[in-house]
Write a protein that binds this DNA or RNA. Structure first.
Lengths: 286, 286
DNA sequence: CGTCAGGGCTCCCTCGGGGGGAGAGTCAAA
DNA sequence: TTTGACTCTCCCCCCGAGGGAGCCCTGACG
């Protein structure tokens, strides 16, 4: 048989660049039908054209090369599942984009209400908690799983929550994109089971503010609270706390959510002397 | 004055990682309010928090860092324009994604109609044309501009098109992602003006097929035609041609578009001997 | 006032998905 | 057989982000 299509011919037919065809060969995504062992020349066949086109489509959809390979290797029915999963990811990403646009519009409006910050001393709180080291991008998924598990354990042990659930997020989580995170449900005499452990949230003095609405904007509230804490020259003592006063388990409408953000503080030597104007969360100041 | 917030403090407040803050400093996107010349320590102020949050939002929208810098530097009204442009790009990208999904669904259906290929010898054709070296990704935008310019020039010189417009696309455009492209409108005695030059599309023997619908799928038709040409052991002689029988200027409905794809061919020595089954554009064959 | 941990600094490597180009080897048409 | 077009590998670049080593600086505590 003739050796088939050279890489250039195949490139012309599929509109995949020669560079990409070589990379796809390297990565095992699209093996040439034949490779001359002496010269290294790659030879393709017309039967590979449709495969190449399908690869192109998946890559157009930003499906990772690894995954495209899996899809091509999978049986047709499993294939459908993988594709559906990817499309769901695209949809989620689209939601995030929409949220970012919405939030951006809000931020560029110059009329932002100043936040109110409350100081509060809280006693130690016994809870049932799950703690782990997670990456910042995975916190949401991890949170859902952990909260569900706490709910299950409390249910089997017939304990009723003694207050709204909350979380503690280590500072490294934000400075280094991954760090320790804890989510808890207050309950006296907490049971153990699965990842759930009893944990006593330590007593602390907190600077607290309430974030209204979905968590897409929560960094703005963090910023406002952080600015306040800085303006009053307060030191940060330990992980940030969030208390989910109204969350997805209370209402399906994210706009109705209420999240307390609590920053454990201690007064530095200069704290009382340096108090000045309250923090502002205004728009750009370039 | 105190030196302000350390990079860690600022990171906690803005939820931008320390790494990213340093990169944004390097790239000039977000300069610390102060940098200690001896230690290199970066110090930020709370006034920079809103800026950081806006940067975060733009990055969430995949706006390139270069561009975010421009947006921040621009006056508020020019800012609106840049943002609108970016949102338009996102919208366009979304369309492309939808098209890819649609096309993918079609490709994974196993019942694809085989294409019909026609051989045609065409004489030399005098035209008014624009030629340039363009990147594959920019062809569409370039095409629109070039066609508009040809239309303008023909209008001022009172020449009527002598047939459907077309294009010639060098093979390098596909093998190397950039190459020479020509678009033309047939007209005897073509005028000169702007980028428009008279150009005679050379006579050739062509293998021609018609692509129906929007150009998102056009690579499939290219693949089918390429497979046909290969199956009949024909050589490729010169740039591929497209003839826009029904295009955006005839109808707003992309599904009604008709594009001829014409591959200049020559018969190789083995051509008549090797003729075999017609090309198929069927689904995956993994 | 000295110690020392925590946090800051720079520099380099990695990843993913691409591009450009050099230098050498190969194929096939004239 | 020549020669130009094609292909090979290898290395560098881009973007935007992360990991980690090794060293220096700051500040709270004793």
């Amino acid at each position: 048989m003739p050796p088939g299509l050279t890489i250039g011919d195949f490139s012309r037919i599929t509109h995949l660049s020669v560079k990409m065809l070589r990379r796809y060969h390297e990565s095992g995504l699209l093996e040439p039908a034949e490779v001359d062992p002496h010269t290294g020349y790659r030879y393709y066949t017309v039967a590979q054209v449709p495969t190449a086109q399908v690869i192109r489509r998946f890559r157009d959809l930003d499906m990772p090369v690894r995954e495209v390979k899996e899809v091509l290797a999978a049986e047709p029915d499993a294939r459908g599942v993988l594709i559906a999963e990817h499309l769901a990811r695209l949809e989620k990403q689209l939601d995030a984009t929409r949220a970012a646009v919405r939030s951006l519009r809000g931020m560029l409006e110059p009329d932002r209400a100043p936040i109110t910050v409350e100081h509060r001393a809280v006693p130690a709180l016994p809870t049932a908690a799950v703690t782990a080291t997670v990456a910042l991008g995975e916190v949401l998924a991890w949170y859902d799983g952990a909260m569900a598990e706490i709910g299950t354990i409390l249910g089997t042990h017939r304990r009723a929550p003694g207050g709204p659930p909350g979380g503690l997020y280590g500072n490294e989580l934000f400075t280094a994109e991954r760090g320790s995170a804890t989510v808890y449900v207050p309950v006296p005499d907490a049971p153990t089971g699965g990842r759930v452990r009893p944990y006593v949230v330590p007593a602390a003095e907190l600077a607290v503010t309430v974030h209204h609405g979905p968590h897409d904007d929560i960094d703005v509230t963090y910023g406002a609270l952080g600015s306040y804490v800085t303006d009053y020259a307060l030191g940060v003592a330990g992980p940030v706390r969030e208390i989910y006063l109204v969350g997805p388990r209370e209402t399906a409408d994210p706009a109705a959510w209420r999240t307390e953000i609590a920053w454990p503080i201690f007064r530095t030597a200069t704290a009382t002397a340096t108090a000045s104007a309250p923090a502002s969360a205004a728009g750009l100041d370039t």
